[in-house]
């Protein structure tokens, strides 16, 4: 039997083999043995929430030798990183290393020019997609500095954004009532007052409120891969815990992954990373487990670089 699965996502493989429903049910039951029996039929393997054992094109995110410039200045200089479904990765690194640039390049921000390398997301060429298409494909970028948009309310824009994503995926739009129910649920999860979502996007929000609102948006849009750029900065002690728990509730699933960009261990206490990377000079210079973050906090970047 010579099945050629190349270029297909995990879900597509399972669907093609008529196993997707079975798989979803088994996963919900949390039966790892049965899960792997099913996955084996399509050449996959799932290990303890940590990684898919499969050929490179089946990583959820595969960044290969990425080079990018901003205003003609090279910032990313051969960055490689792979992320599997079910994993949480943390990126740490000195100011100006290119962490936000990586997020922007993956999100498709105009002016961030890719000059080399490639990126696949669920097997498709991410860099060929427009920003809104990347969102519809399941990517969410949490901004280090969320943008204020006067005159446009969160609920108005999020409903349109979600329905645009659903349309692109061939799903029916949510009605006003259905959307508000969902928004209320996610606002409650992040302990944010629903009235704040009726206000213009981020206008007059404190730094911490903006970050919390980013997490509410993530909950509503329900991405498969979230890149969270310094979500922890600006949060007070309680908000840090609430956002950390929120990230776990929304994203800690076998078919989802998170890339946390952070400077401190504090968020990682709540959202435990499977891998920690050090980004310096536009490249990943070191990768380790959760202990690497602790070591960095103790010794600084110079010691590990």
């Amino acid at each position: 039997m010579a099945n050629d699965y190349s270029g297909m996502t995990v879900n597509e493989r399972l669907f093609g083999a008529g196993l997707l429903d079975d798989y979803d049910r088994t996963r919900a039951q949390g039966d790892l043995t049965k899960l792997n029996e099913l996955l084996a039929k399509v050449g996959l393997r799932f290990e303890n929430g940590s990684h898919w054992d499969l050929d490179p094109s089946f990583y959820m995110l595969n960044i290969n030798n990425l080079h990018a410039t901003v205003a003609d200045k090279p910032i990313l200089k051969g960055l490689s990183l792979t992320i599997n479904a079910g994993e949480v990765h943390a990126i740490m690194g000195p100011n100006g290393a290119g962490k936000s640039t990586l997020g922007y390049v993956l999100g498709g921000r105009p002016g961030y020019e890719v000059t080399g390398g490639d990126v696949t997301f669920d097997g498709t060429d991410l860099l060929a997609l427009a920003p809104h298409e990347r969102a519809a494909a399941g990517l969410f970028l949490g901004f280090q500095y969320p943008v204020e948009i006067p005159g446009v309310s969160f609920v108005q824009f999020l409903r349109e954004a979600l329905n645009s994503q659903r349309k692109a995926r061939g799903q029916a739009p949510l009605s006003g009532g259905e959307f508000l129910k969902l928004a209320r649920e996610k606002a409650a999860l992040l302990r944010m007052d629903m009235d704040m979502l009726k206000r213009p996007v981020n206008v007059g929000f404190s730094g911490g409120e903006k970050k919390r609102a980013e997490m509410v948006q993530m909950g509503i849009l329900d991405p498969t891969l979230a890149i969270l750029d310094e979500t922890d900065s600006g949060l007070d002690i309680d908000a840090l815990r609430i956002c950390g728990e929120g990230i776990n509730a929304i994203m800690r699933k076998p078919d989802k992954a998170v890339l946390l960009i952070t400077h401190y261990q504090r968020l990682l206490d709540y959202v435990k990373p499977d891998f920690v990377h050090v980004l310096a000079g536009g490249r990943i210079i070191k990768t380790g487990g959760p202990e690497l973050a602790l070591q960095l906090e103790e010794e600084g970047y110079e010691a590990v670089a």
Binding site: G107, P131, H132, V147, V152, A161, S164, A168
Partner: peptide
């Protein structure tokens, strides 16, 4: 602002 809205899925 446009990029922010687009990155959330708006064409």
């Amino acid at each position: 602002g446009l990029f922010y809205l687009e990155s959330r899925g708006l064409p």
